[in-house]
């Protein structure tokens, strides 16, 4: 089995406070994993470390067998990250936002139209992001993260603030991505179980439980 993400004794410290403490985790290709835990457990920090946004204080991490902090550009090409907040520009339309990311990732502008269709965004394609509801913004942000067909998809608080219909659309979509490695962080055990095969429970920056759903 190919390992997509491997962390060994990974820690992130802010002053005296450990956001992550000795996190050792292995996630294989094609696995869908939910990071669970209360507020401040370290879910988002772990996500951001895997996304190469945060440099860990100690420990090692390999993504696709590479050190992401040495070969960041190469690794980021294969990662799609949806954060808790939208990464889209309010003043631009969904189309303009996606075209910007598509150009930088060297993706053809037509290559992501099927995702737009699947997530029912066609109607709002030419609408400025600031005029969109939270759910639509989230969907647009997901398209942004998937534009370059990443092998590793990181979804931080995917279901937060979304209605059941949108959550169902997203679960259906990500369940159809069998060959992708998916890591989500969620407070909702119900939705996490629908999408993921494994739950990793964090508390105060440490993994307290790692078990299949």
């Amino acid at each position: 089995m190919t390992v997509t993400v491997e962390t060994i004794d990974l820690s992130k410290r802010y002053g005296y406070l450990y956001a992550l403490k000795n996190v050792t985790l292995k996630i294989n290709k094609g696995e869908s994993v939910a990071l669970m835990g209360p507020n401040g457990a370290g879910k988002t920090t772990l996500m951001k470390v895997i996304a190469t946004h945060i440099v860990p204080s100690s420990g090692t991490m390999k993504i696709f067998g590479e050190n992401p902090f040495k070969n960041g550009e190469k690794v980021r090409k294969r990662i799609g990250f949806v954060g808790h907040e939208s990464f889209l520009y309010d003043e631009l339309t969904i189309k303009e936002n996606l075209f910007f990311y598509a150009k930088v990732f060297s993706v053809n502008n037509e290559d992501f139209l099927d995702i737009i269709d699947f997530l029912n965004l066609k109607r709002w394609y030419n609408v400025q992001v600031k005029q969109l509801s939270h759910g639509l913004r989230k969907r647009a942000d997901i398209v942004r993260a998937l534009i370059h067909n990443p092998e590793l998809i990181l979804l931080d608080e995917l279901f937060a603030g979304l209605d059941a219909e949108t959550c169902n659309i997203l679960v259906d979509y990500f369940k159809s991505q069998q060959e992708k490695t998916i890591i989500i962080s969620s407070h909702s055990t119900e939705w996490a179980k629908k999408l993921c095969m494994r739950g990793v429970f964090l508390n105060r920056g440490e993994i307290v439980k790692d078990k299949p759903f």
Binding site: A51, T52, I79, G83, F87, Y89
Partner: peptide, 14 residues
Amino acid sequence: DRGTLSGLKTLPCS
């Protein structure tokens, strides 16, 4: 402030 910096950090560039 708007969190779009994280979007720039996802780009495969230096």
